[in-house]
Each structure stands twice: as C-alpha cells, then as structure tokens.
Simulated scan of single mutants.
Amino acid sequence: MAALILVPPGASAQAPSPLGDAVTVVGPLQPGTTPMAWSYTGLSAGVDMFERRSSQLAPGALMRYQMPKGMLPPKEKDGKLEDTTAAIAVKGWSVPLPLAPDLSFVLPPNDRAKSDGAYVVMSRRFPSGLYQHPIVSVRTPDLLPNVLRLGDLRLACEVQVRILKKDMLRERILLDAKSWFEKGPCEQDRMFDAPAQYNSITYTAGSRKQVMPASGKQLAFNAPLGDDKWPDDTLLTFELDGEPAPKLVAAPRPVQPPKPFNLPMDSQPAPLPLELLEPDLSRESLLYQEAEVIPATTHP
C-alpha cells in the first residue's frame, strides 16, 4: 500500500515527549536513541476518522498502521536479530499487540486504554532527534499488488492528518491555520510511496484512461487528491517497462479488523523485551528533522 509523505511546514519545531513519565522503565537506555511509542488515544482518533469517512471514500477498505521509515534495525543477540514486538502499555499493565509479517498492526478498541493514557510501544527505536507517527495504510481488498485506488489514498491522508492534529499541538495549529487560506492538505496533490518501482502509471476511471510516464524508475508518485476529474473509484496501475510493477519482497498479508480485548488488570503485566524503552524526557530527543519524509516501507 502506498504511504502518504506528509511533511508539515516548519517541521523542525520542538515537540514534547510522547511518553512523559507514563511508561514504566523496563530496560536500560540505548544511548543516542529515541523511544518508539505512540499515544493510544492519538492512534484511536485515526481509527475513528477512518470509520466515519470510509463509507464515502473507501467502502469495504481495511486500515492498518505501518512502521515509519527511519527506525533503527533490530538488535543482534547471540548472532541472531531479535524479533520485533509491540505492546499496549502504561504503568501497571501491558498487553501484547500482534504484528503482521510486514510489522503493520491494527489497533484494537478499548476504552480503558484511552482513559489510562496508554501507549503503543515498540521494541525498536528511532535515532536520537527523530520521532514519527506510524503510517496509515488504507487498501481495498482484492486489488492486484501493483494497483491502488484513489479514494483509499484520500482517506489515508485524512486519517494521517487527524493523528497529527490530535497528537502534535504545533502541527494542529499549522494545519488548522492553512484551512483558512487554502485547500486542506488532503484537497491538493500529495506525494505517496508507490507499491513497487515503476516508470509509468495508468489512471483508469470507467472508460477514461490516462497513462502518465515517469522519468526513469521511481518509488514515489504525486496523487491528485483534490482533482475532481478523478473520482474515488479511480484505479492507479503501476508498470515497469510495460509489465506490472514487481511485488515487494515481503508482501503484507491481509489484516482482519481487530476485536475488543479485556485488560488483565488482576494479573501481572505481559513481559516486555528487556531493552524495550526508557522515557527520554529531554526536548532535544524529539526534534522533528527538517523536511523529514514519513513513508511506509515493507520490512522483511
């Protein structure tokens, strides 16, 4: 699934720690790194936006969160790379969060996780100074791997913006201010990751077709989110030298919608990896890097 490359203006501004002191320290710090954790409430706001808008933009589509680009590789232990794990956690309890083979996940609904201020916590980390949200992936089932749907991309953009507005005060102010003077970020062209390397895209809307060649082999493309001439059902077919763009090495498997879970409040917290996280409360640890790109990539 293509991922939105959404870079808020002035993205070098400082951001508060997403963790604060909410998560228990469960392992030693990895020097020079930033915890990889996201507010459950912020991600849940994205799910709410998807549920509100999917019937208009992407009926029948599924949504999942994918890992952002920039996370550090898994640590090596005894000559083997450690497994990547995730949990929903806060002081006093934690529950494992299943990951698909491409490290994507769906967010299970739970009111207690919201009220307790829980976080989605990964066993991976960012380099110091980098903090990114997971990338929203919206995809209509049964499409070929090299085909995307424009309504899916429009909805992915709206969900991504909703998370930014929910979690990041500065980005919320900037995005709201822009709406007074120009089209919103999802009503104009946006860059997305392509499903695979390509050198042409065919747009198909009913009987209308348009081939858009690229200069050389590309991995990203500009989607016309605000162009009314291309309806939501428009299909984008990616080709490389006249053939379907090749599949990614690790194609994601379908992820079913999550079911509510019960928090095991009367039992011990689920064990987390020893070097999972320790909150870094310094402002310097969470600076947005200038013009940082936030695409999703499939990881083996």
Rank of each mutant, 00 (worst) to 15 (best):
I173R: 14
T237E: 10
D78C: 03
P246K: 08
Y65E: 02
V211Y: 05
F261K: 06
L4W: 10
A100E: 15
S94R: 04
V120Y: 08
E292D: 13
F221L: 11
P231Y: 10
E292N: 13
I5P: 00
D176G: 06
A45W: 01
P279G: 09
V293L: 15
H299L: 12
P279N: 13
L148C: 11
N222V: 13
R149N: 08
A205P: 00
K165I: 07
I294V: 14
L276C: 12
A177G: 08
T234F: 08
T204C: 09
V90G: 07
V255A: 15
P68F: 03
P224V: 01
F192L: 14
T84N: 01
Q289S: 07
A13D: 10
A2D: 06
E290R: 14
A245E: 11
V136W: 03
G42K: 03
V138L: 05
F126A: 04
L240Q: 12
P68L: 06
Y198A: 10
L72H: 03
L236S: 08
A86Q: 02
T297K: 14
V25W: 04
K91L: 00
P213I: 06
I294C: 13
S215P: 00
D266Q: 12
Y198K: 07
T24W: 02
Q132F: 00
Q66P: 01
S267T: 12
G20L: 05
L43H: 05
